[in-house]
Design a protein around this nucleic acid. Structure first.
Lengths: 231, 231
DNA sequence: GTCTACCATATTGTCGACAATCCTGACGAC
DNA sequence: GTCGTCAGGATTGTCGACAATATGGTAGAC
């Protein structure tokens, strides 16, 4: 669940399998709905099926894999309604988090986050996309953390994993990326002014994903996923 | 995750273990922090350790069990800050859900929920407490479902599992129970009037758990848990 | 008496094997 | 040609066994 800043090599097999599969599922390196062959994956990860299946069971309750009795595990589908639902819930959680952060966060913490974001923004032009997406995720998580609510962060981490793919596609558009960066800064301005409601509303519109955008992202995403499979 | 109205006997062992352990963890029939002996539980459930461990891994990502490498699984602790965080997030999700439901739910759906709740309220005096808690949970879930957002419901189900114990204790006080029932009806009135914001705010105060209340519930809860262990 | 080192035991982590089930494709009836 | 049926192989579900590690208790040093 919580990704440490510097990932140390996991000692036990379950952890290793969990990390590996999670990354693959998050990035949709596994094709949607694709049935996962346990023996093959176990061989690739150099372990037996037992720890692998334990890891897979973890990912099922995280919504990254699905399981059907006697048909084993498969990657989740890329569903428009699911993505839309996740974006909606995410907006609710982050907006509420911003309001809480305005009340609870120390000024120093806000300034720290502001400094972090300035640094990310300054390096933006020379940062690879996948890294930018990670920075974006981190920004939102750190912001949520300022609400002092661990569970909120936990849930957002889970959501992030599931929408990562769409998020990446959205940030591919340079205009959208730039806009997004500016919106983050604007949210912080509101918070530094103590305007929690303003920050929340700004965030909400920042996170509003129109049905149309989602549909486009998913179409694009599917094309990408299956194009990769050819190469 | 989703508990069917009439629980059919789970065919495979993993499912069986999952249900059994989940129920025990939700009700804190396992003592907080208690280390779970796999061989003993496997024997009790008449299965081997493999499917049992798979089920346990599911429960870890649900926040109902914890796992430490080489020390196995244990029941989550009963933590005041965790409970408070969960109640806060729950309030955020349900309030936002009510706003969305006001926009999206058909009148018929609202009336159906209203009818359901009237029926529950009418039978209240003769309904056992544990059932009342289940009805309460169902009310909130059905309300959230009216927002048309499956993921919201999913997350609330997860939260419900983790706060079930405290919820039960809160509803033990007859005054609180009565108040709670009335508040549900009031929320529905607002929604039937199309007043999503009013419903949301009402819900929010309905779900506000003061730090003090939480502390009391947890003290009471701990006493209960360890008293049970003596009997 | 307290602390440490060590051993025996208990428990978890992982594996390979087998049973149960599903899937594929060939074959034949119609 | 279409459908159903039925092997045969592939895949998942579960088990028991062993290896790796932790735990608890005892003996000895001081």
């Amino acid at each position: 669940m919580s990704r440490a800043p510097q990932q140390k090599p996991p000692a036990n097999s379950v952890e290793r399998a969990y990390e590996a599969l999670r990354t693959m599922a998050v990035r949709f390196e596994l094709k949607p709905g694709e049935r996962l062959n346990e023996v093959e994956i176990a061989r690739r990860l150099e372990m037996s099926r037992a720890p692998l299946r334990e890891a897979m069971n973890r990912l099922v309750t995280q919504g990254l894999l699905t399981v059907v009795p006697n048909q084993g595990f498969s990657c989740r589908k890329l569903s428009a309604s699911e993505i839309a639902s996740l974006y909606e819930v995410r907006a609710d959680l982050e907006a509420a988090g911003a309001r809480a952060a305005a009340l609870r966060a120390r000024r120093g913490e806000l300034e720290e986050l502001d400094a972090y974001w300035s640094k990310v923004a300054a390096a933006q032009a020379t940062t690879p996309l996948e890294t930018l997406v990670a920075r974006d995720e981190e920004f939102h998580l750190r912001l949520a953390a300022l609400s002092g609510n661990r569970e909120r962060v936990r849930m957002l981490e889970n959501i992030n994993a599931r929408i990562h793919f769409v998020r990446r596609i959205n940030l591919e558009t340079p205009a959208r990326l730039k806009e997004s960066f500016a919106e983050h800064a604007a949210v912080l301005v509101r918070l530094l002014e103590g305007d929690g409601d303003g920050a929340a509303e700004l965030l909400r519109s920042h996170l509003a994903l129109s049905a149309e955008e989602a549909a486009v992202s998913i179409r694009e995403g599917l094309a990408r996923i299956y194009a990769d499979s050819v190469a």
